[in-house]
Amino acid sequence: MTSALIQTIYSGLVLGSIYALMSVGLTLVFGALRVLNLAHGALMMMGAYVSWLTAEWLGFPAFLGLPVSFLVMMLVGFAMYRLMIGPMMDKPNGETNVFIATSGLALVAESFALLVFGPRNQPQPFAMGGSFHVLGVTVSYQDILILLVAGAALILMDRFLTHSRSGMAIRATAQQPDAAQLMGIRHDHIFLLVLGLSSGLAALSGVLLSSIYFIAPTFGFHPMMKSFIICIFGGLGNIRGTLYAAFIIGITESVVSLYLGVRYALPVMFGMIIIVLIFRPAGLFGQREVVRL
């Protein structure tokens, strides 16, 4: 009984670290651009396939899948901003148009993946076999790898945002866009950088998540829905809050799956978010008004 619970909480932590990666990417875009990127799940999916292609198709060692996927998807993020989001943001109703356009892009990307890779699930080559036991809990090497990669990426991201000149400019733009411009910060440069980083983080989370499940053309959709719940839970645009929320949701998902069954995980989460939003409209960790990076 206890060991089952410990095992569950532990899997919740592993899941939570992946959710944190994908949600921070999503909340970063919302914080800086004030738009929701509905292609985030498709970017995760593409990232997972890039890693697969790197190993299976190009024949590179499997561990290269992760960095290659990060870099390739960062470029995809840049292109997405330059060709689609950027031009839309300058026009009236830009936010709504981006919302619709990104969900359209997600559909196109998913259909394209279905056409190229087929509906069959693929295993993620970026994975390690084997496990060991500790305190009655089975720990796989893959879980350790996930925790290390996610932890390192989140710490680097935090350092970047709090200490580098570009990271400060991103936070400034999120907190006070007009004042940021008056400091000489160019919105278009910041938005481009944010889309690139966010897509890179989506790729990392896509690779990691598919390593414990599988890769398929639409496998990014449900995680993206969870990501939205996490972002709202933590206060949209609030990075620290999003991190806490990711682990709360990851552990909740594991515990609910254990005691009630997997199919109740998403309904319970939506139930939680409805309750949180009734009593704390800015999210569990949100402050009263708009909370930014």
């Binding site: 400019a169 400034a172 006070q176």
Partner: peptide
């Protein structure tokens, strides 16, 4: 329009 979640020094450096 100061940057509300940043310290005084961070605000100044952004200037």
């Amino acid at each position: 329009l100061v940057f509300p979640q940043m310290t005084v020094k961070e605000n100044l450096y952004l200037g």
